[in-house]
């Protein structure tokens, strides 16, 4: 493991932990954005340039802004003195620890994982575009339909109610 990967992994993990534990929700959203930038850097380091830039565009650009808007629209940005965790949170955290222990044990003891790193695959954006237009054209169309449906659905759900309705 290279030192670069260790540094990026530490940044990503610390930002994710901060996003889940901070009290101020705007800080949480910004920490989440930092975590996504760290993940994008890891993708770049793993030779997946296209996915790295798509991650920056979609997650850091769109999803983070969307979440900040939602925080402001629901007035969750005001800090209150109430508890930030739901009742019964100990069970949730305990389950998370158990999940990590099981997956970590499996990763460290699995005999099937390749030991030697394979050669870095070279994939150009041109190749990705060709594959998207030939082999993966049906999933591409389905994702287009899904995004359209999600767009219309989100607008309909968030529409203001008519006068007189509760």
């Amino acid at each position: 493991m290279s030192p670069v990967f260790i540094i990026l992994a530490l940044v990503t993990f610390m930002a994710a932990a901060a996003a889940m534990t901070l009290r101020h929700l705007v800080h949480c959203a910004l920490a989440m954005a930092v975590s996504f930038v760290g993940l994008a850097a890891i993708y770049l380091q793993l030779n997946a340039q296209f996915v790295g830039f798509a991650q920056v565009l979609v997650y850091v650009g769109a999803v983070a802004i969307l979440i900040v808007f939602a925080i402001l629209l629901t007035r969750s940005g005001e800090v209150s003195n109430d508890s930030i965790v739901a009742p019964g949170w100990v069970w949730g955290v305990g389950m998370a620890v158990v999940i990590f222990a099981v997956i970590g044990w499996a990763v460290l003891n699995s005999p099937g994982l390749p030991v030697e790193a394979a050669e870095a695959p070279e994939v150009t954006v041109r190749q990705i575009g060709n594959d998207l237009m030939t082999r993966y054209v049906v999933p591409l169309e389905v994702v287009g339909c899904l995004l359209t449906a999600a767009l219309i659905g989100a607008v309909v759900i968030a529409l203001r109610d008519r006068e007189g309705e509760p």
Binding site: M1, S2, F5, I6, A9, T12, F13, A16, A17, A19, M20, T21, S35, I42, L46, I84, V85, A86, G88, W89, G92, V93, M95, A96, V97, I99, F100, I103, G104, V107, L108, L113, P114, V115, E116, A117
Partner: peptide, 24 residues
Amino acid sequence: TPLQGCLLLSALLFAVGFAGAVSR
């Protein structure tokens, strides 16, 4: 190995996300 490092980081992120999603 580097692959195990990536998988461990992924497991860690999943656990953190899960803990936050069910307990906040």
